[in-house]
């Protein structure tokens, strides 16, 4: 039987103290999408090295030959480790496709792929995702972070009725 989640305010304060520690020690906030971009570029580079190296946006990652030796890549690895440790201790590790009671798994996976694509693209436009832009920039009271967060939640609420079958 999986254990209950922790109180959201307790988890939020713990997360906030982690973010504060990140600023004090690393000098930068938390981030996730930057690590994903590096890993995706590395995978693409294995297939088409010349095209990726010539690209203005991604080529720089390969200038020194070690695109994965980057703090957001190891931070993402840490998120996987810490997430697994917590889920394992709470008996919450279970292989499966999470979806609403009336949603087929194939629909859920298709939406996960398309949604992931939009989120990945959006994060590059915005210079960060909910971690690097909304949370970390918001804690530094950045104007663009509040614009991003507001737009993100407004769009998600507006679009939610269209994908209700996936979840409810």
């Amino acid at each position: 039987m999986q254990r209950p989640y922790w109180n959201p305010y307790v988890a939020g304060i713990g997360l906030g103290l982690t973010l504060l520690l990140s600023y004090v020690v690393l000098g930068t906030g938390l981030g996730a999408s930057g690590g994903i971009t590096r890993i995706a570029a590395t995978a693409a580079h294995a297939v088409a090295p010349a095209a990726i190296e010539e690209n203005a946006y991604l080529g720089g990652y390969f200038a020194e030959g070690r695109p994965l030796a980057y703090y957001l890549v190891t931070m993402l690895a840490g998120v996987l480790l810490g997430g697994f440790g917590s889920a394992f201790a709470a008996k919450r590790v279970a292989i499966g496709v999470e979806r609403g009671p009336s949603a087929p798994a194939s629909l859920r996976l298709l939406f996960a792929l398309v949604g992931g694509g939009l989120a990945g693209l959006g994060a590059r436009f915005a210079l960060g995702c909910t971690s690097g832009q909304a949370l970390s920039g918001g804690a530094m009271l950045q104007t663009g972070s509040f614009v991003f967060t507001g737009a993100c939640f407004a769009a998600a609420f507006a679009f939610a009725p269209l994908v209700r079958k996936e979840w409810r």
């Binding site: 859920r108 939406f111 398309v114 989120a119 990945g120 959006g122 993100c152 769009a155 998600a156």
Partner: peptide
């Protein structure tokens, strides 16, 4: 950042995750 936020928000509710939480979801199986 406004346009990125709009794209991201649709991706969030349709995909069910954001990048950081998806890593935690993957770690949970």
């Amino acid at each position: 950042q406004l346009v990125g936020g709009l794209l991201f928000g649709v991706g969030f509710v349709a995909g069910g995750w954001c990048p950081g939480t998806a890593a935690v979801g993957l770690a949970s199986g």
